[in-house]
Write a protein that binds this DNA or RNA. Structure first.
Length: 873
RNA sequence: GCCGGAAUGGCGGAAUUGGCAGACGCAAGGGACUUAAAAUCCCUCGGCCUUUAAGGCUGUCCGGGUUCGAUUCCCGGUUCCGGCACCA
């Protein structure tokens, strides 16, 4: 053993041994309990960043812990390899997307291996490989067959900077592209959609299975996104026409208060019902304006809503009254029926609209214990109450009224109970090259024809020109790809040139890992049944509604196709926090790299370029644009893989954001060196302790008993931390305490009467430390394990057991309070009976001095924790 | 506007079920070793007050409440972060 911890050589050696022996390669083993540990696979952007290091360090700790505990562990890795950056690189630098992507994959795989993650590389997949995307295409064909995939022309979100359509989930803050941050525009386009709305109810109700296993906020975000609302459809007949206008309302109890109607400008009825050609033109202009209005302006709550009268009237089916029909852009064409009944007394938007255009307001819901006056109201009364001005329904409470009115509507055939969702169907067509080709063919005679399954995969052509000046998707220019023959009639036909949203690729990759080389089917159902669901899924919160909703949806389709028995793909979800660092900002030169500023040592920084004082901003997510990134490679070279892994687990609990700290990294490095040196300094005493299964303990001194107790308590604590709590920062600190204790302890020389007793306890402690730290710093621990005589690999265990009796402290210092303030402490054996404690307290000098001659009211004893003496009032 | 989450020393964080606030680490200060530096080891370290020892008061965003006892539970508020934002 060398005196100094040479991490570089140690890490390289053990990585080679693990790979050689295939320790992390897994297979279905019915004799063992399985554990599927998965971190969200990365986009191969070129190199790993600190967020990756952390994400995979968390998963690796869990996977390694399970492996040491005898589970059959699957911990796979692959690449979310289709996507825009590859294509942009091709345009900017003339490198083919495939070449760029595979070069990045090679580099990142090499980085992963040098960090020593316990991935089963034999299961690696890359979504841009035809053997993978073939099954995306197959899945699409199955959805087409079932009517889940369909084509329509509709308003879509178009990002000009990415030159493609985006799904609703991929538009942030109302109008911003999730990828590039630029504003999106609404365009009418034709494209492919998946009927995720068919699964809305199930996606929502299965939250029940996830509750308690997924973070509440992810479930809440999905719930809001799905946006279920329950109410009724109501038909309003038009005056002088056979036509009806159907509306959706969540408040049938307010139906008597509907004094006008409003249509969305896009609603085709608008033009149809206009009462004159003049009016028609006016309405057309209004609709055009609404269509081209800025999305933010149109949807901002604060801005008063413009409206336009159609000249037509409808009949309120309850009151029989004639009510005017208006048009306004606050009514959305994509939600409900694109038309509403307006109840200005009980809906704020309707109220504001009614005030602006002087439309009637009628109270039909009375709050408990007060009266409303339509003339004096300043806002709508939106809460529930008792029905008034509602004929036979007067006096009913809102909830009863909703039921009764709905029943009445159904009896009369003028409405029905209804559920609507905010969720829209998922638009998956992307007008870009680097994605999975959508396997359909357009034939002039036969229409839209699916590519026969036997012809899959439809290969993405490699020879392609990325000349955007010619407009549109580069695939359009690939004539050999586009021109084909119709599979039905054999006449010339053209292929679809749009590719699939890459979120499709990532919606089922966890299934493919179960059977990654299968070229007969998407996955062998037996293998899916063995491994799924993923027992622990780990990734960033940014995918709360995108990836995590899509994957749940696609998995249900895979289930319905008979390839899985599980309803939900991810049994437990952990969303890790971001890796953050303070930003440096110069008032003139913007964000600065650390070496662009001079550290004045007093917390202030000077910009090297212009000499002005740079502001130290708050800690923000590491990003290139803010220039506050740290390259894992630098730390790998200076401290090694074990140190960066352990730091990223120690600095904060996984779910929280982590502030990067160079001195914190050094602290962890020091800790590993301390362990190394302790073993080196006590090599003779520790020799072969890893090979020892049973240790003979001798009656010890105070400190040996204490060390044993601390060792067992630490094993217990860390084992329990792995059971879903995953607070590795405290696991590591428990080990630091043991190591500190070992350093502080007097370890007698051989021949001393206490030597044997101390030796046994120290050997046990060091052995256990090496074992429990292995999931966090596997290379150094594997090395120490082998140096201390471990014959098998530590990676496969064993995990140490703890003895409950030893883990419990023998002597306890119990704080004694008088009226809630600590005044003294009692040193007593654990589990001392209450009577004895009470006796001790009553006779205690300090306690009595704090009584000031008053008598004791009662004594509260919390076993082994605390005593509180309450003075009688 | 609505819905979540958070707030603890100079900093990251700990306190698992209402029971010792500040574990562990960083930074800082002091000391040992060294010709020196690095490395390493040891000590101190929330604030205020008194001090010979030791102790007292105060302190977990702010204001109330429940309780023998509240970082933890309840009510009201502040600030920050995130999500959704005319969804009828």
């Amino acid at each position: 053993m060398e005196e100094f911890y040479s991490f570089g050589e140690i890490e390289k050696r053990w990585q080679a041994i693990w790979a050689e022996r295939g320790v992390f390669e897994c297979h279905e083993d019915e004799g063992k309990q399985k554990f599927y540990c998965l971190e969200m696979y990365p986009y191969p952007s070129g190199k790993l960043h600190m967020g990756h290091v952390r994400n995979y360090a968390i998963g690796d700790a869990i996977a390694r812990f399970k492996l040491m505990n005898g589970f059959s562990v699957m911990h796979p890795m692959g690449w979310d390899a289709f996507g825009l950056p590859a294509e942009n690189a091709a345009i900017e630098r003339g490198i083919h997307p495939a070449k760029w992507t595979y070069a990045n994959i090679d580099n990142m795989r090499d980085q992963f291996k040098r960090i020593g993650y316990s991935f089963d590389w034999s299961r690696e997949v890359a979504t841009c490989d035809p053997s993978y995307y073939r099954w995306c295409q197959w899945l699409f064909l199955q959805m087409l067959k079932k009517g889940i995939a369909y084509r329509k022309t509709t308003d879509v979100n178009w990002c000009e900077s990415c030159r493609t359509v985006l799904a609703n989930e991929q538009v942030e803050s109302g109008n911003v592209c999730w990828r590039c941050g630029k504003e999106v525009e609404i365009r009418e386009m034709e494209g492919w959609f998946l009927k995720i709305t068919d699964y809305a109810d199930e996606l929502l109700s299965h939250h029940e299975k996830l509750s308690g296993h997924w973070p509440d906020r992810v479930l809440t975000m999905q719930k809001n996104w799905i946006g279920r609302s329950e109410g009724a459809y109501v038909d309003f007949p038009l005056v002088n026409s056979e036509r009806k206008i159907r509306v959706f309302t969540t408040r049938p109890d307010t139906l008597f208060g509907a004094t006008f109607m409003v249509l969305a400008p896009e609603n085709p009825l608008v033009i149809e019902i206009a009462d004159s050609s003049e009016r028609r033109q006016e309405l057309q202009r209004f609709a055009d304006k609404a269509k081209h209005a800025d999305i933010i302006e149109r949807t901002d709550i604060g801005i008063p809503k413009e409206g336009c009268f159609t000249g037509s009237y409808a009949i309120n089916p309850m009151t029989g009254e004639k009510i005017p029909i208006w048009v306004s852009d606050f009514v959305l064409w994509g939600y409900g029926t694109g038309a509403i009944m307006s109840v200005p007394a009980h809906d704020q938007r309707d109220f504001e609209f009614a005030r602006k255009y002087d439309l009637p307001i009628r109270i039909v819901i009375a709050p408990e214990g007060r009266d409303l006056d339509p003339g004096k109201m300043t806002e709508a009364f939106e809460a529930v109450g008792r029905m008034v001005n509602s004929s036979a329904f007067n006096g009913l409470s809102s909830d009863v009224g909703i039921r009764e009115i709905t029943r009445f509507l159904e009896e009369k055939g003028i409405g029905e109970h209804a559920v609507t969702y905010r969720l829209r169907d998922w638009g998956i067509s992307r007008q870009r090259y680097w994605g999975t080709p959508i396997p359909v063919i357009y034939c002039d005679s036969c229409g839209t024809v699916p590519v026969p399954e036997t012809d899959l995969p439809v290969i993405l052509p490699q020879d392609i020109s990325f000349d955007w000046s010619r407009g549109g998707n580069p695939l359009n220019q690939a004539l050999e790809f586009v021109s084909t023959t119709c599979p039905v009639c054999g006449k010339p036909a053209r292929r679809e040139t749009d590719t699939m949203d890459t979120f499709i690729d990532s919606s089922w990759y966890f299934s493919r890992y179960c059977d990654p080389r299968n070229d007969q089917q998407i996955v062998d159902p037996k293998k899916n049944d063995y491994w799924l669901p993923v027992d622990q899924y780990i990734g960033g919160i940014e995918h709360a509604v995108m990836h995590l909703l899509y994957a749940r949806f696609i998995h249900k389709i895979i289930r319905d196709l008979g390839y899985s028995k599980t309803d939900e793909p991810f049994a437990n979800l952990l969303t890790q926090g971001m890796v953050c660092l303070e930003v440096l900002r110069c008032p003139r030169d913007g964000y600065l790299y650390p070496d662009e500023a001079i550290d004045n040592g007093n917390g202030s920084y000077t910009c090297r370029m212009c000499g002005s004082e740079a502001e130290v901003g708050r800690s923000e997510k590491m990003s290139k644009s803010k220039r506050n990134t740290k390259d894992p490679e630098d730390y790998l070279a200076r401290f090694g893989a074990d140190t960066i892994r352990m730091f990223s687990l120690f600095a904060a609990p996984p779910v929280r954001d982590l502030d990067w700290s160079d001195s914190g990294v050094e602290g962890v490095f020091r800790f590993l060196k301390r362990i190394w040196r302790f073993v080196f300094d006590h090599l003779e005493l520790l020799k072969n302790c890893a090979a020892e299964n049973v240790i003979e303990f001798l009656p010890g001194t105070g400190s040996t008993d204490e060390l044993r107790q601390k060792t067992h308590a630490a094993i217990k604590r860390i084992s329990q931390d792995f059971d879903g709590r995953y607070r590795f920062n405290t696991s590591i600190s428990a080990c630091m305490e043991i190591v500190n204790y070992l350093y502080a302890m007097e370890i007698p020389e051989g021949g001393h009467p206490d030597y044997s007793a101390t030796r046994a306890v120290v050997r046990e402690a060091v052995r256990a430390m090496i074992q429990v730290l292995n999931p966090f710093a596997p290379h150094i621990m594997e090395e120490l394990w082998s140096l201390l005589g471990g014959s098998a690999l530590l990676a496969t265990g064993p995990w140490p057991a703890w003895d409950e009796a030893i883990a419990r402290e023998k002597m306890i210092e119990i704080p004694v309070q008088v009226n809630g303030k600590i005044r003294t402490r009692l040193e007593v054996p654990a589990d001392t009976p209450d009577e004895i404690l009470e006796e001790l307290v009553r006779n205690d000098e300090t306690v009595n001095s704090w009584l000031n001659g008053q008598s004791i009211g009662k004594i509260i004893i919390v076993p082994n924790r605390l005593i509180n003496v309450v003075i009688k009032k």
